[in-house]
C-alpha cells in the first residue's frame, strides 16, 4: 500500500479526449459551479469529502490533459488509482470512437479499481436531439463490454451528478468491505502488513 492511500481513501482519475468536460465535471463536483475552464496542461489535483454510512472519507481527484501527446503523463497519474471516470461527449462522435485509448490505461491502475463510463453534455440535446451523436444504447453497450458502470450527465444543469457521486462512494465502500473480509480471513498477514506500513510511514519523512 502506498503512503498516499493512507491519507486519501480513494484516488479518482478522469480520462477522456480533449474538451469532453473533464475539468468542468471536477469543478461541478468540488465547487458546485459551472464555467468554461481553460484547457488542462499536464494534470491538476483536487480533493472532495464523501459522507459514508459510518464515517467521512476524503477522495483525491486527478484531472488530466486530453490531448494524445500527454498520454504518457496520464499513464503515470493512473498509478494507484482506485476509480477511473472515462468521459466522452455525446455530441461528438470522435470522442466516443477514441475511447479504447483510455480503457487501455486500466493496466496501470489498482487491480480492484472500478470504472465508470460517462457521457457528458446532456443539456445540449435537451433543446434539439439532433445534436446527439452517440445514443444511450451505444453508451450502455460499450460500458457493458468493458465491464464498467454507466452514466449520462450534464455538469451544466447538474443532472445525474449527485447520483454519479453516490455511486462512486457506494462502490468504494463495497470494495473496502470486501477487502476487509479478505484481510480478516488471513488475520496474521493483515497484522504484519499494517505493522510494516506504519514503519514505512515513519521512515519516509
Amino acid at each position: 500500500m502506498n503512503e498516499e492511500e493512507e491519507k486519501y481513501d480513494l484516488k479518482i482519475i478522469l480520462l477522456g479526449s480533449s474538451k469532453v468536460g473533464k475539468t468542468t465535471l471536477v469543478n461541478r463536483l468540488t465547487q458546485g459551479t459551472f464555467e468554461n475552464p481553460e484547457q488542462t496542461t499536464g494534470a491538476t489535483f483536487s480533493k472532495k469529502k464523501y459522507q459514508g454510512e459510518l464515517q467521512e472519507y476524503t477522495f483525491s481527484i486527478w484531472d488530466t490533459a486530453g490531448e494524445e501527446r500527454f498520454d504518457s503523463l496520464s499513464s503515470f497519474y493512473c498509478r494507484n488509482s482506485g476509480c477511473e471516470l472515462i468521459l466522452y461527449d455525446i455530441t461528438d462522435r470522435n470522442s466516443f470512437t477514441n475511447l479504447d485509448r483510455f480503457f487501455d490505461k486500466l493496466q496501470y491502475t489498482n487491480e480492484d479499481s472500478f470504472v465508470i463510463l460517462i457521457g457528458t453534455k446532456l443539456d445540449l440535446i435537451e433543446e434539439t436531439s439532433k445534436l446527439r451523436k452517440v445514443t444511450l444504447e451505444e453508451g450502455k453497450k460499450k460500458a457493458n463490454d468493458k465491464n464498467s458502470y454507466f452514466f449520462e450527465i450534464s455538469s451544466k444543469t447538474g443532472h445525474n451528478i449527485q447520483e454519479l457521486w453516490e455511486t462512486v462512494g457506494d462502490l468504494f465502500e463495497k470494495n473496502s468491505q470486501k477487502n476487509e473480509i479478505k484481510h480478516r480471513q488471513d488475520n496474521n498477514h493483515f497484522q504484519i502488513n499494517s505493522f510494516t506500513n506504519n514503519q514505512k510511514k515513519k521512515n519516509c519523512c
Binding site: 491519507k7 491538476t44 489535483f45
Partner: peptide, 13 residues
Amino acid sequence: CECSMSDVFNCLQ
C-alpha cells in the same frame, strides 16, 4: 508537506 504524492503535487502547484 506530508511526504505523499498528492500533498507534494498540491504544494508545488
